[in-house]
């Protein structure tokens, strides 16, 4: 841990930011100054002040409290769906490159089909087909719907990297050793694909948060009045941002900070996992 901080100071800071967000989300009811759902018509569209640090929205709800509560939704949906989508994609990509031939063709045509749909349409179809399946307060099918559009993109990128790893003599050595396919893919190829995987994983967390917001906007994702960063950017924020820019500035900053932190943490993790960067 100390070694990581010394080698990757930027990564350590971004991990700390992510940790703070996660803690904030988990302990939101205790951390947040107000109930995120409490409507206060006496303080509609209030400017940031000592009472409301981030101001209030069109219903007089405290934006700081909503941002803190929103971290739950954003982090869970963003991280879980990106992790799910990237992992399945990476596995498909690696398998595609490793086996080659007909298996490669089959997987790549599937990927082509998935890529042909606009992301939002694909997610809509999945949500429509699967319906809702709420686990705790999050819709599990929403996570699947957001993860699926990520799968083909990651599969393409990882396959390209895996093809060059596949051609390395150490993979031939493993095959000549008679190791199982699973062992070769997970033990020998996967660690060498960590760099593209981690970059894609962290980049798609941001995408997932935005996609969740879009779906929520269309009424298929998280719905009002649940506090979610993406949702806070839509709705009546779109009508009032001229007069009350804090309505979009703070949730927007929260998204940017999360995306930035995840990207930097991913880069740091990638370097940290590469033995060449250790002395």
């Amino acid at each position: 841990m100390i070694a990581f901080c010394r080698a990757q100071p930027l990564g350590a800071v971004s991990l700390a930011v992510i940790l703070v967000m996660m803690l904030g989300g988990v302990f939101a009811p205790w951390v947040a100054p107000y109930d995120p759902l409490a409507i206060d018509f006496a303080a509609v569209l209030a400017r940031p002040s000592w009472a409301h640090w981030f101001g209030t929205d069109g219903y007089g709800r405290d934006i700081l409290s909503r941002v803190i509560h929103g971290a739950r939704t954003a982090l869970v949906i963003g991280f879980v769906s990106s992790f799910l989508g990237s992992s399945v994609g990476a596995l498909l990509g690696a398998a595609s490159a490793y086996f080659g031939g007909k298996i490669d063709d089959a997987i790549q045509r599937l990927v082509d089909i998935l890529l042909a749909f606009p992301i939002i349409v694909l997610a809509l179809v999945v949500v429509a087909v699967l319906g809702k399946a709420v686990v705790l307060w999050i819709d599990a099918n929403l996570i699947v719907a957001i993860a699926i559009p990520i799968v083909p993109k990651v599969a393409r990128v990882v396959r390209a990297a895996a093809l060059s790893v596949r051609a390395m003599p150490y993979i031939d050595a493993a095959r000549a050793g008679g190791y199982s396919h699973l062992r070769i893919i997970f033990r020998h190829m996967a660690p060498n694909l960590a760099a593209p995987y981690l970059i894609m994983l962290t980049a798609y967390i941001a995408q997932a948060i935005l996609l969740e917001a879009s779906l929520s906007f269309l009424g298929l994702g998280v719905s009002e009045p649940t506090p979610a960063w993406g949702l806070m950017l839509s709705g009546n924020a779109a009508d009032f941002y001229g007069e009350a820019p804090w309505m979009i500035i703070f949730p927007g900053l929260a998204i940017s900070l999360a995306v930035f932190a995840f990207n930097l943490a991913g880069d740091a993790l990638r370097d940290w996992l590469d033995p060449k960067f250790k002395t």
Binding site: P169, Y170, G177
Partner: peptide, 21 residues
């Protein structure tokens, strides 16, 4: 599988024939 073990290989390039990870 048993025979695989009996037939082994040493490659040309000592840089790329060992898994860097």
């Amino acid at each position: 599988r048993a025979l695989r073990r009996k037939i082994q290989v040493i490659f040309q390039d000592p840089y790329s024939s060992l898994n860097p990870r």
